[in-house]
Design a protein around this nucleic acid. Structure first.
Lengths: 164, 164
DNA sequence: GTAATTGCAAATAATTTGCGTTACG
DNA sequence: CGTAACGCAAATTATTTGCAATTAC
């Protein structure tokens, strides 16, 4: 139960909790540290196991709540492993490195969509991880070109009326 | 954990059960019919609900087992929804329409990986579905170019020795 | 006939929630 | 000090498994 937070000047954005308007507590700090120190995605139970070593008595519910909070704050990335559990790691700024482009095969409209956000980012990260595991390839950048029908053209093709 | 038993990926004509060396039973047929008649991904509990209407008394375990079997037979595609449940629909032959290419940024080695199989296919389908839901765009074809480091070059970069 | 398959119920597994207590700010 | 956050345990949700009865072939 020792090991209060040492205030070493890490240089990183320390204190994302306070920034987000939340309290900085020992359990939260411990969870963040564990995920920061890991060099791979961690499942909640593994985070719990590791946090427990330095903060005996912490509850697993707190781990879940903290992982969720940190994900909402944008500090952590979440993916879903192939067997369905959620995995977390610190979100680096990969925004510019991964691009998703939608091209309509009918009107040729081209649209870029943000690749790191929400469910899309989740699926992309899961994808990269699968590639890295199954094909021994470290993904650094990517370009995803999806072609198909935009909403307008889809409506036309289905017999509806074209855009207003 | 699922996974035991190796099954052949047979074509998905009629009677995939017999083709795969399994018995054709009423519950299995009903599950297959329901998924075939659906025009969207279905979760197991929804399949169960629909099957129950035409085959009162069927157990949900059978639905799970059949969905798993049909997926292993290659008849169904499986994706993981954003909230973690498995979703199923008939697998159409999209193999040629979606390509994944790995390009090593160091040795320029280029490798195509099969896009429809296993966990990779699962993540891609989840991705397409998210795009379709969140961006009103129907994905028909895709090209995914991932660049990074192949295993050999990754070893080199880490200070290890190159390929044996 | 016999082994695969079923339905049921209990078992897992991952995650969430209710609640009285603790402690951050 | 007030209330956000905690730990615990019970609840939920999705899926799996053991087993005796059933049924396809």
């Amino acid at each position: 139960m020792r090991g209060r937070g040492r205030h070493r000047h890490c240089g990183h954005g320390d204190g994302p909790f306070r920034k987000g308007g939340f309290r900085r507590t020992a359990p939260r700090q411990a969870v963040l540290e564990v995920v920061r120190e890991a060099d791979d995605y961690l499942a909640a139970d593994e985070v719990y196991r590791r946090v427990y070593e330095r903060l005996e008595g912490i509850g697993i519910a707190t781990v879940y709540r903290t992982l969720q909070l940190l994900t909402e704050l944008g500090v952590l990335s979440r993916i879903v492993s192939d067997d369905g559990k959620a995995l977390y790691r610190v979100a680096d700024e990969e925004a510019a490195l991964h691009r998703v482009v939608l091209v309509c095969r009918r009107c040729s409209a081209r649209r870029a969509v943000p690749a790191s956000d929400g469910a899309l980012g989740e699926h992309l990260r899961s994808l990269y991880r699968t590639i890295e595991n199954d094909h021994e390839f470290t993904v650094e950048q990517s370009l995803h070109q999806l072609s198909g029908l935009c909403s307008d053209c889809s409506r036309i093709s289905h017999g509806g009326s074209p855009r207003l």
